[in-house]
Computed example of a mutant assay.
Amino acid sequence: MTSLATPDELDLDIDAAPRSPRGRRERRTTTRPIPAADALAPVTGIAVALGLWWFVTAVLAAPGSMLRSFAPAPTWDALVTLLRDGSVFDDTTSSMWRLTAGLGLAAAAGIACGAVIGARRIVERGTRPVLMFLRMISPLSWAPVAISLFGVGDSPVIALVAATAVWPILMSTADGVRRIDPDHLRVARGLGASRWEVVRSVAWPSAQPYLLSGIRMAIGISWVVLVPAEMLGVTSGLGYAILNAKDQLAYSDITALILIIGLIGYAIDAQARWLLQPRRERKAAAR
């Protein structure tokens, strides 16, 4: 039979107006000019944060105190030195590899388990106490277990990232599958749709927003956990770079690395937010 097509596959233009008498399609204008206050608000927030940083570390701090090592001026010098040295790029590559590998494992396990749990109420009720118990354990609590099982190196860090990311993906997938309208499934089966066509044309479009939201949440949490996990027996990565700077008493390097970690995390979240939104929303935003 002919597969059931989703609205995205049909590429319907929801915002399109009816055709005019002359046969031309007229489009509604959905974009609005951004007020100047809204455009300046992020810039103002950043300026205020930088001003507070400078005031606390360069004005309030007593001369010769350690707090002055975290001021903007020495941090900027350390940041320039790190970028010229190039080692921060190698550390960033190592961190991104561990993040990607851990997220891949978490997505494979979380989607599979979440689909089973969401599809069967008895399975959901039976696994809820154990899952809630495991979910509330800090991922870093598993660090000694991961090191005991996998030794030192990339493997325990990847395992900790996967243990962090699996829960939002699993819970979001189960919630999305649980919210699929049974009437839609019955209609698809009544039209003779195969199991794969039901999954592709009914189940996936219904559960997709929940799953993508869980993946984005998992990316953010995993990036936060990755840095302290890299302080456990590895010789590369941004977490290791911070630990190494602390051992060398290079406090301005620590602040510079914190800035790098924050900027990379912000970029990752912005990219994930754009990539994981439905195709129709991406097309509307691009207009």
Rank of each mutant, 00 (worst) to 15 (best):
G64D: 03
V161E: 01
V88C: 14
T173E: 11
S95D: 13
A41R: 05
A250K: 12
T44W: 03
G265R: 09
Y240G: 12
T29V: 06
A39K: 08
A47N: 03
A62C: 00
E230C: 10
R178S: 07
E124M: 08
M132I: 02
V225F: 05
G45N: 05
S148Y: 13
T6F: 12
L226N: 12
L212N: 14
A47I: 04
L52N: 04
R24G: 11
A286G: 07
R280F: 09
P129I: 09
P144C: 08
L238M: 14
I147Q: 11
W54A: 15
R195E: 13
L149N: 08
P72C: 14
S138M: 14
G214T: 10
V88G: 12
S65H: 07
A112Q: 05
G190F: 01
G190K: 08
V166A: 01
L12T: 12
P156V: 11
G176R: 07
V198R: 02
L249E: 10
L103M: 14
V80C: 05
S155V: 08
I122D: 10
E9Y: 02
L79V: 01
A101R: 06
P18C: 00
I219G: 00
G114T: 02
P21I: 12
P42T: 04
P156Y: 04
Q271L: 15
A143S: 09
I122G: 07
S206N: 09
P74V: 11
L140I: 15
S201T: 07
L103C: 05
A188W: 02
A119V: 10
L257Q: 01
G51Y: 05
D247Y: 13
A256H: 04
A193Y: 02
P278W: 01
I158P: 01
G233C: 13
A162R: 08
V202R: 00
L211F: 14
A218Q: 04
I46T: 01
A165H: 02
S138T: 12
L185H: 06
A256Q: 11
G102C: 12
P182D: 11
G262E: 00
G110M: 03
L249Y: 15
V130K: 01
A73F: 11
I264Q: 09
V224G: 08
A78K: 10
V116H: 00
Q271D: 02
Y266F: 11
E124I: 01
N244G: 07
V187I: 15
C113Q: 01
S87M: 13
A71Q: 03
L99Q: 14
D175A: 15
R189E: 13
S3Q: 09
R19D: 09
P205T: 04
G51E: 04
V166C: 09
L257D: 09
A101P: 00
L226S: 14
A108I: 15
A165C: 09
G262S: 10
G233D: 08
H184C: 05
A203P: 01
D154F: 06
I258V: 14
S194K: 03
V224D: 01
L211W: 05
A285M: 10
D85E: 05
V80M: 06
W204C: 00
W204H: 04
P209W: 12
F89Y: 14
G237C: 04
A73E: 12
M96G: 10
D85Y: 06
M136W: 03
D38V: 13
Y251T: 02
P209F: 13
V56K: 00
R178Q: 09
